[in-house]
Design a protein around this nucleic acid. Structure first.
Lengths: 201, 201, 201, 201
DNA sequence: GATGAATGAGGATTCATTCAT
DNA sequence: TATGAATGAATCCTCATTCAT
């Protein structure tokens, strides 16, 4: 079954969900199509189970990565940790993006993913609030959304490169986020090593 | 034919390229399947024609949006214009993203898109170089990549909202980019209203 | 219309009846598909009209070629004339074979062709009877069938070659028929330049 | 699979290759269209497999039928044996002709068939040479071609009849060939029961 | 009369799913 | 339980035919 999920991950990665055939998955897993259907009622269920596991692991990853920071943690540190974890996760599970993007993925996964997104969102919001308690909730929510989107886009870029170049992109992604967030958290993080940012007046 | 392309755009948007059936496109266009095949030799050709038109329009859009800035233009202005154009384009052509993502889109489109990407990239690089002439080429290239990815991700976020909320996201996207780029262009844009950024020492 | 039939002949020749498309015929004729259907109710009708004309011309050709021979005509002369006409006809109308062979031609043509075949058969029978009046009718009929089949097969062989080689095959075809028929007509054609054949005793 | 090939043979026989639909073949075989495609990748492959088997069997048939004759074998015997085998083969495999004629049969089959034709041709040539060693090669080749064509045409005639009538046609076919060849082999077969033929002087 | 875009049933082929072994 | 042949609906695409202009 782990075998099957791994095969599915591999096939989804290379062909996408829609174009992936259950026969191809079974073949990749080295079992017969019939066997596949003794573990999963249909193709969608495979993607859902896969998604569930990813989401679960992601939740754990972020549970730690986005946990409320201890007082005194700098923005750089917080962002750095989160990005590193995110990158690590993305490297270990390239399927995640095959199941995340694309309008042709099963509804259940979309829901699952939305739920994950919402969770992450609230964590990021909490984090942001701890850094900038006075910011209106709507702004925090929006900023969190932007952060998540940026995360994902940046991660794809990171994964598209290797070695030193990958590391360079990781640094850029951190800069991108830190610089974006600095003004918001600036006043409440005067102890940081970055100059306060003067936003559009 | 415009009718068909529009229908195709609509169907590709909702189901993705792979899952889109030519019969569905024909139905959406209000014609019979046979009619569709008098204009396009096959499904791929529809996507390609659609992609060509989008790329063409995108090229024009960017030709103006990313044109070398006149001396004296601020980073904010340059980014603001580019983002506005990009957003406008995205609003008018939501298909663009359906044909851009996904591993199962026809090779021709991928090429076309890669070519477009390369073009945009070199324009952004030129723009960045004009703002920060002393930056090493490799860094400029990487920064341009990050900008483009951020553009795209931000645009999706923008398109997912409407009205005032959309405008707010547009502002955030501009901030995101401006803040990211400010340190790089900082020394050459001392006249700007942003403080120079002190990067990782 | 002659234009259309000619185009049809050409297309039938190259692709066969079944694989020939009415659009291809119309295109070959330089007219629109609609125009084609103002002359013929359907694809079959084209083949039928074509077949009719060929059969008509063939009938005339054979009317003369297989006409009752004047007394004193040798077998060689009779066969030689018939073969020459047949070959000439085949050279001018290569379609004939496209519409003659193959199990996928319309029933009407088959009938037409069968009628032609029957006509030719009775002429050949008459000819044979005039050469060998004492032969039983059943034998004459069978021999006539063999002659016709041999004719056709030989003709295809002839048409497959050109120039001197074609002429050589024409000669062989004549030999084939003359030698086959000689024993049957031998006794009644003692004046011929061939030795009588002593058949299976 | 034998079931499918048999069904295909039957359908090809009645409708010809082009007009034969895979659904019809599947239905004739009593299976679903999908099943057919688990054995053959496409319609052409069915014809090719069928053709291969026929060609293979034909080769064996002819390997024996056209083997170099032992010294002392008469022309009648040689022809008689070959025709009998050919007829037997044709009776058991009427498809052979459906896949042999027609301009729309798959290229692979045409090649296969051409190869077979060439093989048969060289065997017939060898046979003829053994009977008439002094005949120029070009003449032998031509005569062999005529023999093969006559074979095929005669066989179709034979297959079109049954019982005693079929036997009668078989005899006629043998006569046709023996009489055609007698003059050529005459001098070297003086011991035979046929009179030498005096050809065009 | 000529046109040619439109039609839609039909054919080749795929693939998610089932079930007898 | 595992298998893998069988299924058949659905897909892409063709082409004989029609009809508004």
């Amino acid at each position: 079954m782990a075998q099957l999920l791994q095969a599915a991950a591999s096939v989804f990665c290379t062909t996408g969900y829609t174009a992936a055939s259950t026969n191809a998955i079974a073949r990749e897993a080295g079992v017969s199509p019939g066997t596949l259907y003794q573990f999963f009622p249909n193709k969608e269920a495979i993607a859902i189970e896969l998604g569930d596991r990813l989401v679960h692991e992601m939740r754990e990853t972020y549970g730690e990565a986005l946990a409320p920071v201890e007082p005194g943690t700098s923005l750089e540190e917080a962002v750095g940790t989160a990005v590193d974890r995110f990158v690590d996760f993305g490297c270990r599970h390239p399927v995640f993006f095959a199941l995340t993007h694309g309008p042709d993925i099963p509804g259940r996964i979309a829901e699952e993913h939305d739920a994950l997104h919402a969770t992450l969102l609230s964590r990021v919001e909490a984090l942001l609030s701890s850094f900038a308690p006075d910011t209106p909730a709507a702004d925090v929510a929006r900023t969190a959304q932007v952060c998540l989107s940026t995360y994902k886009a940046g991660l794809e870029l990171v994964l598209a490169h290797e070695g030193a170049e990958r590391d360079a992109y990781v640094r850029e992604l951190k800069h991108l986020l830190v610089r974006y967030l600095a003004p918001m958290v600036g006043e409440h993080a005067a102890s940081r090593s970055v100059h306060p940012w003067i936003d559009t007046p």
